[in-house]
Protein backbone atom coordinates (compact mmCIF):
# COMPACT_ATOMS: atom_id res chain seq x y z
CA UNK A 1 0.00 0.00 0.00
CA UNK A 2 1.26 3.42 -0.94
CA UNK A 3 2.03 5.65 2.00
CA UNK A 4 3.08 2.95 4.45
CA UNK A 5 6.71 3.78 3.82
CA UNK A 6 6.45 7.14 5.57
CA UNK A 7 4.93 5.44 8.58
CA UNK A 8 7.78 2.91 8.59
CA UNK A 9 10.22 5.81 8.46
CA UNK A 10 8.59 7.31 11.52
CA UNK A 11 9.15 3.99 13.26
CA UNK A 12 12.84 4.06 12.39
CA UNK A 13 13.40 7.52 13.83
CA UNK A 14 11.38 6.68 16.94
CA UNK A 15 13.62 3.66 17.46
CA UNK A 16 16.62 5.95 17.19
CA UNK A 17 15.18 8.17 19.91
CA UNK A 18 14.17 5.44 22.32
CA UNK A 19 16.84 2.76 22.02
CA UNK A 20 20.25 3.75 23.48
CA UNK A 21 21.89 1.02 21.40
CA UNK A 22 21.06 2.99 18.26
CA UNK A 23 23.20 5.90 19.47
CA UNK A 24 26.39 3.83 19.51
CA UNK A 25 28.55 5.55 16.97
CA UNK A 26 28.22 9.15 18.11
CA UNK A 27 30.39 8.97 21.22
CA UNK A 28 34.09 9.67 20.87
CA UNK A 29 36.45 9.77 23.81
CA UNK A 30 36.26 13.39 24.99
CA UNK A 31 32.53 12.96 25.63
CA UNK A 32 32.17 9.28 26.33
CA UNK A 33 31.39 8.66 29.98
CA UNK A 34 33.71 6.28 31.81
CA UNK A 35 32.60 3.81 34.46
CA UNK A 36 34.98 2.94 37.38
CA UNK A 37 35.77 -0.33 35.59
CA UNK A 38 36.77 1.58 32.44
CA UNK A 39 39.04 3.81 34.50
CA UNK A 40 40.63 0.80 36.18
CA UNK A 41 41.17 -0.84 32.79
CA UNK A 42 42.82 2.27 31.42
CA UNK A 43 45.10 2.36 34.50
CA UNK A 44 45.84 -1.40 34.14
CA UNK A 45 44.63 -2.19 37.65
CA UNK A 46 42.17 -4.40 39.46
CA UNK A 47 38.79 -2.53 39.64
CA UNK A 48 38.39 -3.06 43.39
CA UNK A 49 41.93 -1.91 44.13
CA UNK A 50 41.42 1.08 41.86
CA UNK A 51 38.22 2.15 43.66
CA UNK A 52 39.86 1.76 47.06
CA UNK A 53 42.92 3.73 46.06
CA UNK A 54 41.10 6.45 44.06
CA UNK A 55 37.73 6.94 45.79
CA UNK A 56 37.23 10.48 44.46
CA UNK A 57 37.73 9.43 40.85
CA UNK A 58 35.38 6.47 41.32
CA UNK A 59 32.62 8.69 42.74
CA UNK A 60 33.11 11.24 39.96
CA UNK A 61 32.83 8.52 37.36
CA UNK A 62 29.66 7.18 38.97
CA UNK A 63 28.05 10.63 38.73
CA UNK A 64 29.17 10.86 35.13
CA UNK A 65 31.91 13.47 35.39
CA UNK A 66 34.81 11.26 34.33
CA UNK A 67 35.27 10.66 30.63
CA UNK A 68 37.23 8.16 28.60
CA UNK A 69 40.80 9.02 27.77
CA UNK A 70 41.16 6.49 24.96
CA UNK A 71 40.00 6.65 21.39
CA UNK A 72 37.56 4.27 19.83
CA UNK A 73 39.42 2.03 17.36
CA UNK A 74 39.27 3.66 13.99
CA UNK A 75 40.06 2.53 10.50
CA UNK A 76 43.79 2.73 9.67
CA UNK A 77 42.83 4.19 6.28
CA UNK A 78 41.29 7.27 7.97
CA UNK A 79 42.71 10.46 6.40
CA UNK A 80 43.73 12.49 9.40
CA UNK A 81 44.62 16.10 9.90
CA UNK A 82 48.36 16.12 10.49
CA UNK A 83 50.72 14.87 7.79
CA UNK A 84 53.45 12.32 8.27
CA UNK A 85 56.46 13.50 6.30
CA UNK A 86 59.73 11.55 6.03
CA UNK A 87 62.62 13.90 5.39
CA UNK A 88 64.95 11.08 4.34
CA UNK A 89 62.65 10.10 1.48
CA UNK A 90 61.80 13.59 0.26
CA UNK A 91 63.74 14.97 -2.71
CA UNK A 92 62.00 18.34 -2.77
CA UNK A 93 60.48 17.68 -6.20
CA UNK A 94 57.33 19.58 -5.13
CA UNK A 95 54.97 17.18 -6.88
CA UNK A 96 52.65 17.50 -3.90
CA UNK A 97 52.55 21.29 -4.28
CA UNK A 98 51.90 20.95 -7.99
CA UNK A 99 49.03 18.50 -7.60
CA UNK A 100 47.31 20.19 -4.68
CA UNK A 101 43.96 21.44 -6.09
CA UNK A 102 43.85 24.27 -3.54
CA UNK A 103 47.49 25.25 -3.84
CA UNK A 104 48.04 25.26 -0.10
CA UNK A 105 51.47 23.57 -0.10
CA UNK A 106 54.53 25.76 -0.41
CA UNK A 107 58.00 24.27 -0.89
CA UNK A 108 61.29 26.13 -1.07
CA UNK A 109 64.45 24.11 -1.66
CA UNK A 110 68.10 25.02 -1.39
CA UNK A 111 70.65 23.54 -3.76
CA UNK A 112 73.80 24.86 -2.07
CA UNK A 113 75.84 22.33 -0.18
CA UNK A 114 74.45 19.41 -2.12
CA UNK A 115 76.64 17.01 -3.99
CA UNK A 116 74.39 15.92 -6.80
CA UNK A 117 76.98 13.52 -8.07
CA UNK A 118 76.59 11.54 -4.88
CA UNK A 119 72.79 11.46 -5.25
CA UNK A 120 72.10 13.83 -2.39
CA UNK A 121 68.73 15.53 -2.38
CA UNK A 122 68.03 19.23 -1.94
CA UNK A 123 67.70 20.82 1.45
CA UNK A 124 64.10 21.68 2.15
CA UNK A 125 63.88 25.11 3.74
CA UNK A 126 60.13 25.71 3.67
CA UNK A 127 57.37 23.11 3.63
CA UNK A 128 54.14 24.90 4.59
CA UNK A 129 50.76 23.17 4.51
CA UNK A 130 47.76 25.40 5.26
CA UNK A 131 45.45 22.99 7.07
CA UNK A 132 42.77 25.66 7.40
CA UNK A 133 42.02 25.27 3.70
CA UNK A 134 42.89 21.60 3.23
CA UNK A 135 40.03 19.36 2.16
CA UNK A 136 41.84 16.06 2.81
CA UNK A 137 41.52 14.85 -0.77
CA UNK A 138 44.94 13.23 -0.47
CA UNK A 139 46.06 14.08 -4.00
CA UNK A 140 49.43 15.26 -2.63
CA UNK A 141 49.92 11.80 -1.14
CA UNK A 142 49.00 10.12 -4.42
CA UNK A 143 51.37 12.41 -6.31
CA UNK A 144 54.43 11.78 -4.15
CA UNK A 145 56.77 9.59 -6.22
CA UNK A 146 59.02 8.69 -3.28
CA UNK A 147 56.34 7.90 -0.66
CA UNK A 148 57.65 10.70 1.52
CA UNK A 149 54.30 12.33 2.33
CA UNK A 150 51.47 10.46 4.07
CA UNK A 151 48.15 11.48 5.52
CA UNK A 152 48.09 11.44 9.34
CA UNK A 153 45.66 9.67 11.59
CA UNK A 154 44.57 12.35 14.11
CA UNK A 155 41.52 14.58 14.16
CA UNK A 156 42.13 17.05 16.97
CA UNK A 157 44.11 19.85 15.41
CA UNK A 158 41.69 22.64 16.34
CA UNK A 159 43.39 25.99 16.95
CA UNK A 160 42.35 29.44 18.08
CA UNK A 161 44.13 31.30 15.26
CA UNK A 162 44.25 30.66 11.55
CA UNK A 163 48.01 31.19 11.58
CA UNK A 164 48.41 28.24 13.91
CA UNK A 165 46.75 25.96 11.37
CA UNK A 166 49.71 26.27 9.01
CA UNK A 167 52.04 23.31 9.44
CA UNK A 168 55.65 24.31 8.82
CA UNK A 169 58.73 22.22 8.13
CA UNK A 170 59.97 22.16 11.71
CA UNK A 171 56.66 20.84 12.94
CA UNK A 172 56.61 18.23 10.22
CA UNK A 173 60.11 17.11 11.21
CA UNK A 174 59.31 16.92 14.91
CA UNK A 175 55.87 15.32 14.59
CA UNK A 176 55.26 11.70 15.50
CA UNK A 177 55.16 9.65 12.33
CA UNK A 178 51.88 7.76 12.35
CA UNK A 179 50.92 7.56 8.68
CA UNK A 180 47.47 6.57 7.57
CA UNK A 181 47.51 3.49 5.35
CA UNK A 182 45.39 5.31 2.79
CA UNK A 183 46.94 4.93 -0.71
CA UNK A 184 49.87 3.10 0.85
CA UNK A 185 49.30 -0.63 0.17
CA UNK A 186 52.79 -1.46 1.50
CA UNK A 187 51.66 -0.38 4.98
CA UNK A 188 48.54 -2.52 4.74
CA UNK A 189 50.64 -5.49 3.64
CA UNK A 190 52.85 -5.06 6.70
CA UNK A 191 49.69 -4.94 8.90
CA UNK A 192 50.80 -1.55 10.15
CA UNK A 193 48.13 0.20 12.22
CA UNK A 194 48.67 3.88 13.09
CA UNK A 195 46.31 3.52 16.05
CA UNK A 196 48.56 0.92 17.71
CA UNK A 197 50.89 3.67 18.95
CA UNK A 198 53.98 2.61 16.99
CA UNK A 199 55.50 5.22 14.75
CA UNK A 200 56.64 4.13 11.33
CA UNK A 201 60.23 4.38 10.12
CA UNK A 202 61.33 5.82 6.81
CA UNK A 203 62.42 2.33 5.68
CA UNK A 204 59.00 0.89 6.46
CA UNK A 205 56.85 3.37 4.57
CA UNK A 206 58.43 3.06 1.13
CA UNK A 207 57.17 0.96 -1.71
CA UNK A 208 60.69 0.36 -2.94
CA UNK A 209 63.83 -0.21 -0.93
CA UNK A 210 66.66 2.11 -1.74
CA UNK A 211 69.28 -0.07 -3.50
CA UNK A 212 72.42 -0.69 -1.54
CA UNK A 213 75.80 0.60 -2.69
CA UNK A 214 76.77 -2.79 -4.04
CA UNK A 215 73.57 -3.11 -6.04
CA UNK A 216 74.01 0.34 -7.50
CA UNK A 217 77.54 -0.49 -8.43
CA UNK A 218 76.54 -3.82 -9.90
CA UNK A 219 73.80 -2.30 -12.00
CA UNK A 220 76.23 0.26 -13.31
CA UNK A 221 78.79 -2.32 -14.20
CA UNK A 222 76.31 -4.75 -15.81
CA UNK A 223 74.92 -2.06 -17.99
Amino acid sequence: MYGLGIVKGLGVTMKNLVLPSRQFNIYQYPDKKASPIDLAKSANRNPIMFIVSNPIKAIRSLIGLETMKERIPQNPRFRGQEFAWFEQRCTGCASCAKYCPLGIIKIVTDTSGVNQQEGQSYDIEVFDIDMGRCMYCGLCVEACPYDALHMGSGFEEGQYKREDLIIDVNRLKKAEKKPSTWFRPQLTNQNYDPMSGDSATSQQVGRHQKPSKEDQKGQWVNR
Binding site: T13, N16, I26, D31
Partner: peptide
Protein backbone atom coordinates in the same frame (compact mmCIF):
# COMPACT_ATOMS: atom_id res chain seq x y z
CA UNK B 1 18.82 18.11 20.69
CA UNK B 2 15.74 15.98 19.97
CA UNK B 3 16.17 16.01 16.20
CA UNK B 4 19.84 15.19 16.67
CA UNK B 5 18.89 12.15 18.72
CA UNK B 6 16.28 11.14 16.14
CA UNK B 7 18.95 11.27 13.46
CA UNK B 8 21.76 9.70 15.56
CA UNK B 9 23.79 12.87 16.08
CA UNK B 10 24.86 14.74 19.23
CA UNK B 11 23.25 18.17 18.90
CA UNK B 12 24.48 21.23 20.81
CA UNK B 13 26.33 20.01 23.90
Amino acid sequence: RTIARFQVRRGPN
